[in-house]
């Protein structure tokens, strides 16, 4: 229990709404198969393109599949693929970043130049180029996105690694003759991973957008696996007659991304002082009111 406390204290610093949305997304994603009320891929053309009913709370799509179940399952698809992308991207990024931060010199210059180039090309273009060469598929998508994503975590982990390496206790360890391996695995790597994880979480929203975008273009998650972007593009031809099927997956995805973006904004350092909230102001006023005022002048 004691170990939980600092984690909870950390969480308390972030906006509650962001935590709720992200929590909901992760919970839905994890337990989707048990939460979905119906089989998401069971087709029934007799009940196709229907509005909300007792049987189908959010209606059905053009093939008669239950929209609610598909939306829930899509959270699972999204969570798994975003998780895979981020884990692979972070592994590459942290590895490159810590190596650059540990070695400095030309290794650092070279790696960071690669990172700069990677960051200057929109991730969608990088990912599409890879898919165009290798051919579409689930793992191609994951790898292509990871390839487009690692420069960001590479840059962050390099910055963290450099600051860790310049700390006095690392210098002391070196003087004491600790092996490079011990410094790298014992101190540099654990410290960097922790810091990069936080940024990576905030970046999960953009990754979810990328997965959905590739699926929308037909180059990511392939049917029949439900995915928000792909559900949206499937329903697009019926936009005029059944806009609900387009809007629902769009809203679900937007909500998840908003959650991550609020978190990201909270994490980004806020250098500008904010004016007091009304409650704080009242508190300070009563504090000051208790102070005596006396005229010291004779």
């Amino acid at each position: 229990m004691n170990k939980l406390k600092p984690i909870l204290a950390q969480l308390n610093k972030f906006p509650r709404i962001a935590l709720i949305v992200i929590g909901l997304f992760v919970a839905l994603g994890t337990f989707a198969p048990w939460l979905a009320p119906q089989d998401p891929s069971a087709q029934n053309l007799l009940t196709a393109s229907q509005g909300p009913s007792v049987a189908h709370w959010l209606g059905t799509d053009h093939l008669g599949r239950d929209t609610l179940s598909r939306l829930i399952l899509a959270a699972n698809t999204s969570l798994v693929s975003v998780g895979s992308v981020l884990i692979i991207a972070m592994t590459i990024g942290i590895l490159m970043g810590t190596i650059a931060g540990y070695h400095r010199g030309w290794v650092d210059d070279l790696l960071m130049r690669v990172v700069d180039v990677g960051l200057s090309i929109p991730s969608l273009i990088t990912a599409l180029a890879v898919i165009g060469i290798v051919g579409p598929g689930y793992w191609t998508m994951v790898l292509a996105l990871a390839l487009a994503w690692w420069p960001m975590s590479g840059r962050i982990s390099r910055a963290v690694a450099v600051s860790i390496m310049s700390k006095p206790h690392i210098e002391a360890l070196r003087v004491l003759g600790a092996s490079p391996w011990r410094i790298y695995f014992g101190h540099l790597l654990p410290g960097t991973i922790g810091a990069v994880m936080v940024y990576a979480t905030a970046d999960a929203g953009t990754a979810a957008l990328a997965v959905a975008t590739l699926s929308f273009l037909g180059l990511g998650i392939q049917p029949p696996t439900p995915e928000w972007g792909q559900m949206l593009v499937d329903a697009l031809p019926y936009l005029e007659s059944d806009p609900r099927q387009v809007i629902l997956p769009g809203l679900a995805l937007t909500a998840a991304v908003i959650g991550f973006n609020i978190l990201g904004e909270a994490i980004a350092l806020n250098r500008v002082p904010r004016p007091l909230t009304r409650r704080m102001l009242a508190m300070r006023r009563t504090e000051v009111a208790g102070w005596s005022k006396e005229n010291s002048d004779a």
């Binding site: 929308f216 949206l232 387009v246 769009g250 908003i258």
Partner: peptide
């Protein structure tokens, strides 16, 4: 700004078509 930065472009496009065209 938050909504604009979080809404996927393809969804924005679909909404534009639905709102301003359909």
């Amino acid at each position: 700004a938050l909504i604009g930065a979080s809404t996927p472009t393809f969804f924005v496009g679909a909404l534009m078509i639905y709102g301003f065209s359909v």
